[in-house]
Simulated scan of single mutants.
Amino acid sequence: MVTRNSSDVIVVGAGVVGAACAYYAAGAGLRVTVIDRGPVAGGTTGAGEGNLLVSDKGPGPELELAIVSSELWAELAALLPPEVEYEPKGGLVVASGEDGMAALRDFAVRQRQAGVTAEEVPADRLHDREPHLAPGLAGGFHYPEDAQVMPALVAAHLLRAGGDRVCLRLGEEVTGLLTGANGEVRGVRTSSGEVRAPYVVNAAGTWGGELARLAGVELPVLPRRGFVLVTEPLPRVVRHKVYAADYVADVASGSAALQTSPVVEGTRAGPVLIGASRERVGFDRTLSTEALQRLAAGATALFPVLAGVRVMRTYAGFRPYLPDHLPAIGPDPRLPGLVHACGHEGAGIGLAPATGLIVARCLTGGDPPLDTRPFRPERFASASP
């Protein structure tokens, strides 16, 4: 059993990525302490829509991570309680014109070559998938492997599933790392005292760069703000996650300016979730009227029926952005014992299981489920001033 002040590994961050790291580490027989300065899912996870997507990722390392995670999510869904609302409802990407449809076809060809199922939906069959879609769209692609969960509940249940091998310490801020005579990790210092372990996992999300600096290493994680509109509960007027073709380009963009593209999805509970916006404004939570107006206009352009629906609330969250749009996962050679699991931007919920499994394999000497070299944390060192 884990004691309050010592364990085999400390995971900093109780969001879904940290919870997945703890779950798989505990499953490998390790004693885990999870520390967070706030509550479970109090950061990016709690502000997420719960998307588990392969549809928005082109061939490459992130898609490989997403494919592994998609398989793991199906396994987890059979183990976790139904309250986590795992729903393999699929995604639908639509194009307004022929140029957009041609781009979607090219994208789908490359995704299929990487192992993703992508089914073309001609314009005259779109309403079979989504009866309330706007008329006049050029067509789209259906991605049956896309799914959704309730992210905060997933994080909580993954931590609970770790059993007595997981000790949860909430409301404690990590203020420093403890090191040994040879500079190796020996634990962390928190607002409540010292916690000892030979490994520390940086799953601090948007604050991953701050934790890295406490450890004396550079990891350029920046917050990328986004807003979500939540409607009143409705009958199931939106069956899939539906988004416009330009969403993929926005995800891949490194621009700091405000970008919006319509993303609309229904939930089992009834409300429709409307996104997506992206901008780099630090940790500024000020409500952006422009962003909200753009989101509403984009959603009603896709689903005119939403024009008469009330928005009950809106919330902001911060995606942990890294310049090459790939997370940092794995041991940091600059500080023995430090392992990173952060920088997933808006895909952290979907990529959490594969990330957690990789971290657990790193900690126990096992083989990772895929090539982790593209995610190595030190890859930004040469770009540092």
Rank of each mutant, 00 (worst) to 15 (best):
Q259D: 09
V217I: 10
S261C: 09
F227L: 15
V251N: 10
P262R: 05
P223N: 10
L214T: 04
H240D: 07
L222E: 10
V251Q: 05
A257P: 02
H240C: 07
S261K: 04
T231Q: 07
S253N: 06
F227G: 05
S255E: 13
A256C: 11
S255A: 14
D246Y: 01
Y243K: 03
Y247F: 12
L219D: 07
S255L: 12
V238Q: 02
S261W: 00
P262N: 06
A249M: 02
P235Y: 08
L219Y: 06
F227Y: 15
H240V: 06
R236E: 15
G216L: 10
S261E: 04
P223W: 11
V238N: 03
T231I: 11
L222G: 00
L229T: 01
E232W: 11
G216V: 08
V228L: 09
S253Q: 08
F227Q: 14
A256K: 12
S253L: 05
E232P: 11
A257H: 14
V217F: 00
P235Q: 10
A215D: 04
P220C: 13
D250M: 14
D246C: 02
V242E: 01
D246W: 03
G254A: 11
F227T: 13
P262W: 05
F227W: 15
S261A: 15
T231A: 11
V230M: 09
V228R: 01
V228M: 11
V248Q: 05
A245T: 04
A257L: 13
D246V: 04
V217S: 06
P233Q: 02
R239S: 14
P262M: 09
V221Q: 02
V251I: 10
E218Q: 12
G216C: 08
R213V: 09
G254K: 04
R213W: 00
V238R: 01
D246I: 03
A252Y: 01
R213A: 15
R224F: 02
R224K: 13
S261V: 05
V221S: 09
A215C: 08
E232M: 14
D246G: 01
Y243F: 14
H240M: 11
E232N: 12
P235W: 09
A212P: 02
Y247D: 06
G226V: 06
A215S: 05
G216D: 03
P233K: 02
R225L: 08
R239G: 14
V230G: 12
V230N: 06
V251G: 00
P235R: 13
L234C: 15
V221K: 04
H240Q: 10
D250C: 12
P220Q: 14
A245E: 08
V221E: 01
K241F: 04
Q259F: 05
S253A: 13
V242D: 01
L214Y: 00
G216F: 13
V251Y: 00
L219M: 04
P233N: 03
V248C: 08
G216M: 07
E232L: 13
A244P: 03
D246A: 02
V242G: 00
A252E: 10
A245I: 02
T260P: 01
E218R: 12
P223E: 09
L214E: 06
D250T: 10
A244K: 06
V221Y: 00
P233S: 05
S255W: 08
A212L: 06
A249L: 07
V248S: 08
A245H: 04
A252V: 03
L214I: 05
L214A: 07
Y243I: 04
P262E: 09
H240G: 07
R224A: 13
